[in-house]
């Protein structure tokens, strides 16, 4: 009896961890629980459920690592040809596949829908002499080495956005002193204590620190100004850069045509639904919807654009 009382809680937790009931839809979340991809996947199906678009069971699998390439590789291996197998992925996956020489080919998967985007912002310390994006870019141009810029991991969306900005301003990408940081918070620390001349990151990571008056945001990568944030776009500042950290859904390679159409329709319907609008609002995500074959073309273009930039930065061959 004593043994039981001691081990029961452990057994309970082990059961919680391993066993979700088998369901007919399999959704691969190629990230650890709690992150952006994880919540995109779970919230989308929650919204579909509330809106009555799809109310059946969903079997979620979390498999994080290497920008989603590990999870997608497993997904491709175990779910190819299955009728109702979906996976979450995003802009980061595109770069990671190239960087890690991953055998994954995104064009083999079925492009279902692109749902959300997070735009990137570039910021300097509140007491920095740079008042505008032009000031900062000129300083970097004059001495790229001394003006280190921090952001997410090498070859990630932050890095690519900075490289695009450099290209637009005729700064050789290879000259940039880009220092990857472990997290958005560390980038802010680096900006504040003067280690970094500037930092680039998703808007959600920087906005609260800008509101606290620790950093000053100089520009945003969206095509148009974002409501509630009095910051010019890169385009307004004269640099033709338009990039977002987007997230979307893929179908398994070889998904039957009927099922593919059903899922494209379901996501299109969900995109306009009340519950999904509420999710976008509470999560602070920007709607960035594109579905079906158009989305497939978009993935192809991103693949080419990002591949070219990574080559120029010396990160890919």
């Amino acid at each position: 009896m004593n043994l039981k009382t001691a081990l029961l809680p452990l057994a309970m937790f082990a059961a919680l961890a391993t066993g979700t009931a088998q369901a007919q839809v399999n959704l691969m979340l190629p990230a650890n629980p709690g992150g952006g991809w994880d919540s995109t996947g779970r919230q989308a199906f929650q919204a579909m459920n509330e809106a009555g678009i799809y109310t059946g069971g969903v079997n979620f699998t979390n498999k994080g690592g290497a920008g989603g390439t590990i999870g997608l590789a497993e997904f491709q291996g175990s779910q190819s040809g299955k009728p109702d197998a979906l996976a979450v992925f995003g802009a980061i996956t595109v770069g990671s596949i190239i960087l890690n020489n991953s055998p994954i080919d995104l064009s083999q998967f079925r492009p279902i829908a692109r749902l959300t985007a997070e735009y990137l912002v570039i910021a300097v310390s509140a007491d920095s002499p740079h008042q505008s994006l032009q000031d900062l870019v000129e300083a970097v141009k004059a001495d790229p080495g001394a003006n280190a810029v921090g952001g997410g991991s090498a070859g990630g969306v932050d890095h690519i956005a900075l490289a695009l900005l450099a290209q637009a301003a005729d700064i050789p990408v290879a000259d940039l002193n880009y220092i990857p940081q472990a997290s958005g918070a560390e980038t802010v620390t680096g900006i504040v204590n003067g280690t970094l001349a500037a930092g680039i990151s998703g808007i959600s990571e920087f906005q609260q620190f800008a509101e606290q008056g620790r950093i000053r945001i100089l520009g945003i990568t969206s095509a148009e100004r974002k409501a509630g944030l009095d910051v010019p776009t890169f385009k307004e500042a004269g640099y033709d850069v338009d990039i977002a950290n987007w997230r979307g859904f893929l179908g398994a390679p070889g998904m039957p045509e009927d099922n593919y159409q059903t899922w494209v329709d379901r996501f299109t319907q969900m995109n306009g639904s009340e519950p999904w609008q509420k999710v976008l609002e509470t999560q602070g995500w920007d709607q960035f919807f594109l579905s079906g074959e158009e989305f497939g073309t978009f993935i192809k273009e991103e693949n080419e654009r990002i591949g070219a930039i990574l080559k120029e930065a010396g990160l890919a061959k």
Binding site: N32, P33, G34, G35, A182, S183, A185, E186, V188, T189, F209
Partner: peptide, 10 residues
């Protein structure tokens, strides 16, 4: 880190 939280001053 499992929760995507980074302990530190922030």
């Amino acid at each position: 880190q499992n929760y995507g939280l980074q302990p530190g001053p922030f």
